[in-house]
Amino acid sequence: MIHSLWIPAFRMKMDVVPGRYNKAWFKATKIGEFPLLCTEYCGTGHSDMLTTVVVHPPGGYEDWLKKASNMLSPVFRPADLTDAAGLLRALKTGGAPVRVWLLERLAPETREKISAWPGGAVSEELRKVVVDDLNAVLTGDPIYDEARFAGVAVSEEARQLLAADPPPAGDDRIGLNRFLLVDAFPDALSRAPDLTEAGRYIYERKGGCRSCHSVDGGANVGPTFKGIWGKTHAMRQGPPVTVEENYIRESILDPNAKIVSGFDPVMPTYRGRLTDREIDAVIAFLKTLAEEK
């Protein structure tokens, strides 16, 4: 169907027609947030097709983009190296077992570059090399060793993952490695964002769940998420279902398998659009909604 993109504050409007490109331009002259709406009738959710255009001050967009693109990454991005010089200094200085161990794990060329580093500013190139090596560590074997991490204050998240049975695998293992590294160098590396925060981001922006599922109990195309965790829903067909991880995952990947009674099978599949970790984040977010209840 045809949509139309309208930013009233910019006096700009253009239809979005399938099968072709339409061009429009605008020049934003003020910093702020402005509503963006759909003005070509496009079906049931037409009046919910709204979002906000954010006009950033110069440079603000780049910051936002970094944050948004790093939101769910289990590995390090260059931006996560919050204090590259501090990290390099720590590695050069040695001392604590974790520092020695990490330096050992880096590639020989990297070690040469670090030893050749005169101090002061860290070049873009060196940053990149270090981050690549750190990621090689993250995606490798589990890094925890009691002796190695002696003297490191292991965070609560890492502790939980370490205690998990079976031991974490895949993204979770990478996440655990990352938590541990950040714990070892808290000032130099930034912590992966909270899953709940990521889940909220997916709900509002990336997944766009918000256009059909409210979080305040309001009626919409799909069931509200308010208090959905652990709730038992009657289904259009088959026995009632209690909302837990597996049901959420199935609902995201194969939305029409089980439809809550009173709703239509209209949700598209998110298979290929959300990664497993992102689905975890959505689940974490839904759990917080249950707590608020």
Partner: peptide
């Protein structure tokens, strides 16, 4: 005029 804006083979 707008023919060139159409996405080829979009069907």
């Amino acid at each position: 005029q707008y023919h060139t804006d159409r996405i080829p083979d979009h069907a």
